[in-house]
């Protein structure tokens, strides 16, 4: 009898731990997989010193999901995977490029815009989603012209 009571204590402990550890499971986010992508980004062949790039799923081509953004530093950008990664498939990349000379008094932390915000169509491959995809982008010289948000297909420019 007493021996049975002793052996039941570890048993109770084990059951408690099991219940506790299982309680944390379940839930989780559903939705499209989020990919890690990185690459070089240039303006007329020259690296963009500073700026931001935003990937927006292209609804006109049936893609859905959250947008994600990254900072451009010295002509390169990286979007980490996980909850802030890029949704694969057709995307619109929106690029805001700055000269990198910060002017805090004018509320421009990255300096002046090199050209009006520019949008280009990108197809982010979904295969091999665990690896970081490399997507290199070049903004053509005519983006600096005053026409706003001109959309280009990446294949025309790269």
């Amino acid at each position: 009898m007493r021996a049975a009571a002793y052996s039941s204590i570890p048993f109770v402990l084990f059951t408690t731990l099991l219940t506790v550890s299982l309680a944390g499971c379940g839930g989780g986010d559903s939705g499209p997989p989020r990919l890690q992508i990185k690459g070089a980004i240039t303006f007329d062949g020259q690296p963009i010193p500073a700026g931001t790039i935003t990937f927006v799923p292209d609804a006109s081509q049936g893609n859905q999901g959250p947008a994600s953004n990254a900072t451009i530093v010295n002509g390169a950008y990286t979007i980490t995977a996980g909850s802030k990664g890029v949704v694969g498939g057709p995307n619109i990349a929106r690029i805001a490029a700055f000269d990198g000379n910060a002017r805090p008094e004018a509320e421009l932390p990255l300096g002046e815009l090199l050209f009006p915000e520019y949008e280009m169509e990108i197809n982010v491959p979904t295969a091999g989603s665990s690896d970081p995809q490399t997507v290199d982008l070049n903004v053509p010289k005519d983006a600096a012209r005053p026409q706003q948000k001109a959309r280009r297909s990446a294949s025309d420019d790269v």
Binding site: T54, N69, A96, E107
Partner: peptide, 21 residues
């Protein structure tokens, strides 16, 4: 120029984005 008390919807929620004011 700039707008302090109202913002564009131009980034995902919780994108931690402040480059363009």
């Amino acid at each position: 120029d700039f707008m302090a008390p109202a913002k564009n919807l131009a980034q995902q929620i919780n994108a931690d984005y402040t480059t363009l004011f």
